[in-house]
Nucleic acid binder design. Structure first.
Length: 193
DNA sequence: GGTAGGATGGGCT
DNA sequence: GCCCATCCTACCC
């Protein structure tokens, strides 16, 4: 496999630190794997753009739970987004996985995403990424330190990180909580020539 | 090359 | 009933 599975303590830290440190790590699900190249931090309480801003509900319960678990939700009635819960148990905070570079199971990803003509488009967005890796809402709440959905540390040196405001939100639009690998062609929203 | 609009369903007021 | 952490297509330069 691609390095050791990230331990619980990796996730039991400030959400922003987890969001940055997830860049370059390998996300695995079933027969597919991809290198995380773009993330966004969603904080608790004062972050009105986060689902947890309004407190614990049936949907947001996972975000307040123990770190290292998956929060998967449906967006716009058609797509699913993968988040990874951070902060100690009882504290809200999660990291949206926005884009990844396909590593294994590329043929399977193309079959799941026929609209993607090129490899760089397979997982270059939060909805695309879950489709390519076959991640759905039935993985909501699963433990990422064991099971079919895991994150691994390939042991590479930390990448150079660019920080920008988050994308696609209507609240807290200026907060610098989006992170991506500098110069990486697999991030979302790039113009293709 | 660029963009406007539609698909589609769950969560919350 | 309205909002939404999105993506794709059609259409227009």
């Amino acid at each position: 496999m691609t390095g050791r599975v990230l331990p619980r303590r990796f996730y039991s830290r400030p959400t922003i630190d987890v969001a940055k440190d997830l860049l370059g790590k390998v996300l695995r699900h079933g027969d597919t794997a991809a290198i995380i190249v773009e993330t966004e931090a969603y904080l608790g309480r004062d972050d009105l753009a986060s689902h947890s801003a309004r407190g614990i509900t049936n949907r947001t319960r996972v975000i307040f739970g123990p770190p290292g678990h998956a929060y998967v939700y449906l967006i716009y009635g058609m797509y699913e987004c993968l988040n990874i819960v951070a902060e100690p148990d009882g504290v809200a905070g999660c990291v949206l996985i926005r884009a990844a570079e396909p590593l294994e199971g590329v043929e399977l990803m193309h079959a799941r995403r026929p609209a993607a003509r090129r490899r760089v488009d397979l997982a270059s967005g939060p909805g695309k990424l879950t489709l390519a890796l076959g991640i759905t809402r039935n993985l909501n709440g699963v433990d990422l330190t064991k099971g079919s959905l895991t994150v691994h540390d390939p042991g590479d040196p930390p990448p150079a990180i660019i920080t920008t405001p988050r994308i696609g939100i209507t609240q807290c639009t200026d907060w610098p909580l989006r992170f991506h690998v500098a110069g990486n062609p697999y991030v979302s929203g790039l113009r293709r020539v």
